[in-house]
Each structure stands twice: as C-alpha cells, then as structure tokens.
Write a protein that binds this DNA or RNA. Structure first.
Lengths: 215, 215, 215, 215
DNA sequence: GATGAATGAGGGTTCATTCAT
DNA sequence: AATGAATGAACCCTCATTCAT
C-alpha cells in the first residue's frame, strides 16, 4: 500500500504535504473530474509545478489521497474496533465514537471518502473498483464479526435483526448530514447525535433482546 | 416552480422537446459536469444553437430536467399515494408498487434522479440544495400523513417506529442496487425484491404492532 | 490517402483551410515538436478551438499536412515526370523544371517536406517511417526508370555514372539553398541556377557520353 | 571564439565538465528543443543548479558544446590535414581516414554535429547560422587549398572537377548513413566504405586526370 | 561550490456558449 | 426558428530557470 511514488512524496516537507492533502481532499470531494488542480494548488499555497513534481499527475494525486484515506481509516477506525464487545449495540456504539473522533481529527476525510465511493460506483471497471469491493466485503465481514446473536429473541432471524439495526442507524446518520454540514461547533452536535442514537438503542434492546439482556 | 424560461421552452415542438429531455436525462445521469452538451444535441438530433436558444445554458437545462423529473414524480407517484391506507406497511407497500411502475415507465428518470441526489453538492452555486431539502421535507411530511399510529405498541414513540421501518427499507433498497445494476430482466428481480421486503414487513408487524393488528 | 477526418476538414472554408495549411507548413518546418499550435492559429488568424474542431489534435494536423504534401508532390512532380526522356540529363533537366515550378507554387512545401523527412528519421519506428521508406524506394526506382545507359561510355559502370551525376547535382542544389533562402525574387535566381546546372551537364556529356551523343 | 562564460566553465572540475559535455552531446543529438536538461544532469550525475551555475542557460550550454565540437574538429581534423598532398584524391583519402579516426574516438561528436547541422534553423534567434556559414566557407577554402589542378584534363574547369568529386563523395557518404545506423561493428563497415570510395576514385582519375597521372 | 525544491510561462486539448447566416 | 462554425477560458501537464539553504 501507499506505493504511489512514495519516495518523492515522502521527501516533501510534512507541513506542506499536509496542506496539499487537505486541499486535495477538499477539492476531490467534488469528484475526480470536477476537482481542479488549479484550485488545489491555490488552496495549498504552492505552485502548479510543485504539485506535479511530487505527484506526477492528477490521477496519481487522487490515488495517493485515496490510499492515504484508506490507511487513516484502517489505523483510526477498523483496527480499533473492539471485537470483545459481543453485544451488537455496544459494538456499534464504540464504532460511532471512533467515527466521531476520526471525523473531528480529519473533517475532510469523510466527505472525500463518500465522493471517492461515488466516483468508483460511476466508473465501472475503474482502477479502484475491485479494491472497493474487497474493502466493503471485508468491512461487512469484520464489523459484525463475533457478535453474540444468542441474546436476540429467538423468533426473528438474527441477520435480519442486525440489518434492521444497521440500516436504521445508517438512515439516522444520513438524516443528520445536512444539518451537521452547516454547523461549526461539532461538539454539541455530536452530543445530541449520540443521545438520539441511544434512544434508538433502547428501542432495539426492548424489541430485539431477550428480557435478561436489556440493560 | 416550473419557471425556467418556460415561455421559451414551451414554445418548442413537443416531440422535439421530449427528445431533448430524454437525451438530457440520459446524459445528466453521469452527473452535471460529466454530461456533454454535444452528446445531448447529437442524441436529440438537434443543433447546438437550438439547445441554447431554448434552454439558455447547460445549467438551466439541468434545472429544467430536474423540475420536470420532480413533476413527473409528483404526478406518477406522490399524487397517487393512497392516503386511505392508514397502516404504514400497507402504505409503503403501495408506494413501492408505484415506484416500480414508475421506474419501468421512465427508466431514465430514476437514473437521473439518483445521480442528481448524489451530486447535489456539485451543482454550481448549490442552487438545488434548498430545493432538495424542501422536497425531502415535503415527502417525509406527506408520505406518512394520515398514518394510524394507534396500532403501534404503546411503549415506543410512534415517530421512531416509522423511522425504523422507513430507514430499514431504504437500507434494504440500497443494498439491492448493486445487484440490480447488472441484471437485465427487472421483472423477476422485482418479485424477489418484493418478497424479501415482505419478510421485513412481518418482522415489523411482530415487533411494533399490537397483537390484534398482526395479520 | 488523405483520410484524416477529411469529412470535417473538407467542410472547412477553403480560403481558411489554406491559411491553416500554410501556417502549419511554415510552423512544422521547425519540426513537429518545435511547432506551436498557438503560433499556427495566430498566423492563420483563427481561434485555438477551431483548429482542434477541424483537426482534432496537433498530430492529426501534422498527418494531414504531410499527406497533403505527398499528394501535391505526386500530382505536381512524380506524375509529371516524362519517362520518354531516356537521356538521363534530359530527364533530370525536366525534373528540375518541375521542381522549380512546384516550389514557386508552394514555397513552404519543400521546407516542410525536408523537416518532415528529418522528423521521421529521428523517430525510428514512428508512424510514417514505412511510408517514407516506400516513397523513397519508389522514387529511386522510378525517377531513373527507363534511362538509356547505352549512351554512356563503356568503360564505366553505368550505375556509378548515374550516381555521380545525381549526387553532384544534389550537392550543387544544396549549395544553393543558403543563398536562395534570403532572396525574394526567385525568378532570376532560378535562371542562374539552371544555367549553372547546364555547365555541369556539359561536363557530364563530355566525360560520360559516347562521342555521338554529345549535343 | 570559445568565449561562452569560459571563465566560469573553466573553473569547473575537469572530470565533471567532461561528464557534462558527454551527457549534453548525447542529449543534444536529439536536437536543441528535444534535449532535456533534466536528462543531462541525470546522465552527468550533477545537480540542476550546478549546470545553470556554470553554463547559465540551456542555450549557452548548447553554444558551448557546439564550440567545443568545432574545437575538437579543428584539432583532430582540420589541423591535421596534410597540405603537402596536392593530388585532390590523395587529400580526400587522408581526410576520410582522419574523419574515421575522429568518429571512433568521439562517437557522440558526430551525432551531435549532424544534428546541429540539420537543426541550424531551429536555433533560437538563428545565432549559429552565421557561424556555420563561416565554418563551411573556411572548410571549403582550406580543405582544398594547395591542390594541384594542373593534373586535371585541360578541357574542364578545375573548380567544377573539384566540385563533382566532392559532391559525389558527399552523396555517397550520405547514402551510407542509413545503413550504418543499424550496425554495431563499425570496423568492417568502414573497410567496405573505403573500398567503395576507391572505386569512385578510380573513375575520377580515369575521367578527370591526365593520362600520366592515372595511377 | 553544490543542491533540488519551487516557480510559472507555455504547451496541447476540451467544451459551454455565442453569433452570423 | 435553426444551424454549426467559431470562440476563449479553463483544463492538465512540462520544463528551463531560480533561489534558499
């Protein structure tokens, strides 16, 4: 991983490199084609030539940002999931906390990731399609690995319970996006977000869990 | 609403206008910027000049197509929702049937709508974001208008029940997209789709409905 | 031949097309890479976009000019060589007259042809290399086809006589190039050129021809 | 002559300077514009800055290489011409031998010289055109200085005899270039070359020399 | 002296938009 | 109304040259 001319890119002044990465993430959030290298260099405060000196081409820059994003997500999210939490709601709760930390640390990351995902969806046969599929499969496989389904009521298929919980929380999260977008103080937003999530958690426990596992 | 230079556009020969609309929907399914006006006029069989004579700009053409799409959806979907079905699952079931009819009638429409929804942020000036929010709000408001929440169990907030049902089914629908994409025979796909939906419906009834309303 | 998007190019206003061809020939005389499309459009008095509208790319423009050049040379030179002149000096004399007519009609043609030749020489394996080799072979084969070598003295290999005559006249021609370049009135230059050539012809007759064929 | 910032260039470490000269000759064989300073510094194993520190500009570097080339040719060719050989064919024969020695000693030199000669018109501002003319004139003047024309037959103008001989041999040499290009073992090539030249020499003697001087 | 990161003008190309016909 | 030739700003990219270290 991270083999995109790393030798050159890694020689770059770190502070400058971060400026480029941030500018590129922001710009690539519009999608690959919509992003303008002019805009990136203006935002990063470097010359056009330098961008290409280090990254070679717009495509390679995109590739680098993409791999960097995946790397960050792996290190700050996937690898930190606590698989000892066998209760799906505890698991999701922890994952949500991780996600929030991550999005506060890298505010542009998720916008870029979403755009990158769309970008690949739109270009079937594109360079990263397979990578995406692998990641998706691996996430789906892993995120809910080692979940204790014995605590679910017996009269509903466990996988469907998991789906309902997951899709509901996804739907809830998406519904927050617009709101969150125009708000500067993330802090309080997240608190509201988490507390509303908890309400759903309580519902899920009530309807899906066996009496003895309801907290 | 439909005020995009309507005076001019409506003077256009209807058959020709429809050719443009179809060509534009097809092309705009790639996203606003990826779409090429050259391709649109070629597909529509008109000259470049004429397109701009009637629509003024690519942006205005996009806006028109978008409003037209909304219009079609209103007439063939929103206005046909049967508000006498007060059971939310019956309501959603009918809405699903309407949607399927619609997507078979206007295959381009849904491709375009999906692209427009995804790419909302890319719209120059973000003009359509507000429009989207209004529409979404209106849909949410209306689609679940006149739902009989008395049939829900009393210990869960009714709006949350509706949300769980809706988001779960949205999540399920999205999960089908990839699969459906590469499949030509929609017919049988839809049948599978509906029957799987029904399984979720049964779960929802079991967990959310009062005993006497479970079919 | 001449199949480079001819449909588009041929739709072009003839006077404008000629302006482009002339500007391109002049610019391409520097070699393909050195030529600037900016310079070409400036010289031709058209916009950048139009050049690419008609010719698609710098390479295709070059290709068109090259094929056009070959076509002109074929029609105005190769096809007009009179093979009934079996005396090599008469043949060369006629060929020289043809060449002069041609270079007065298309002053840029020979500069471009020379540059194009270099260009191909420098890019082994290039697109037109084979074409060039074929042309060269065909010229060498044809230009001295049907020469009556029986009029040469018997004690010198006829091919060597032909070579001496040809190379000498080539050398003489090259020696004139610099001089001619900076002179506007071609007319009188050519007269001097032809008369000096004639002096060499007389020498060739004296030393290579049998007594009875010396005019 | 050699005044191109010599003061700076000559301060350069000799071994390093030679690496630059060789790298530049090799690269400039592609033509001035095709040559890349990046390639030159990479090949020479020095930094970009140093190249410009010593040579000022690509153009000046080219000029220096050109003058150096001329200098080498002067020392290893022009100055070694044996003017005591008054028979033009003996003179040319010796010159050919000198040339071959030289081209084996400096294989890059001739590639560069050929490219420089061909591309003279491309030089920015045509600076070197005049230089070329001077050199050529000087070569023509000097190379055939002290030739004994009394051994020529009386009925042909001596200068024309010289021209025929010279141009023929130039033509012959050019005709060998393509062949030679793709051949690695120069040695045997040169032997063939010389022996074919000799055949032309015999012809020249037969047709241009007085009986008593034919060897 | 020596480095190579940094610059920016210039290159070829695309495409929404205009306008003479 | 209808055409499509014509425009030019914006795009990605290259490369000789400069300059802080």
């Amino acid at each position: 991983m991270l083999e995109v001319e790393s030798h050159k890119i890694m020689d770059m002044d770190e502070e400058k490199r971060n400026r480029v990465i941030n500018a590129a993430m922001k710009e690539f959030s519009k999608g690959f084609k919509h992003a303008s290298t002019d805009e990136i260099v203006k935002e990063a405060g470097i010359s056009k030539g330098l961008l290409f000196h280090y990254f070679g081409s717009k495509e390679k820059l995109y590739e680098f940002i993409l791999l960097d994003t995946i790397d960050i997500m792996k290190n700050n999210y996937f690898d930190l999931i606590n698989f000892e939490l066998t209760d799906i709601l505890d698991r999701i709760w922890q994952m949500s906390l991780l996600k929030m930390d991550l999005s506060q640390k890298y505010p542009l990351l998720f916008d870029f990731a979403a755009a990158a995902y769309m970008n690949e969806q739109e270009n079937p046969g594109g360079k990263f399609n397979e990578m995406y599929k692998e990641i998706q499969a691996s996430v789906a496989m892993n995120a809910f690995k080692n979940i204790d389904t014995s605590i679910f009521k017996d009269d509903i298929e466990p996988q469907k319970i998991i789906n309902i919980i997951w899709w509901t929380l996804m739907g809830y999260a998406n519904a927050q996006v617009d709101r969150t977008k125009s708000i500067s103080s993330y802090k309080s937003e997240y608190e509201r977000y988490l507390s509303e999530m908890e309400e759903y958690f309580n519902i899920f426990r009530k309807i899906f869990y066996k009496e003895e596992y309801i907290k």
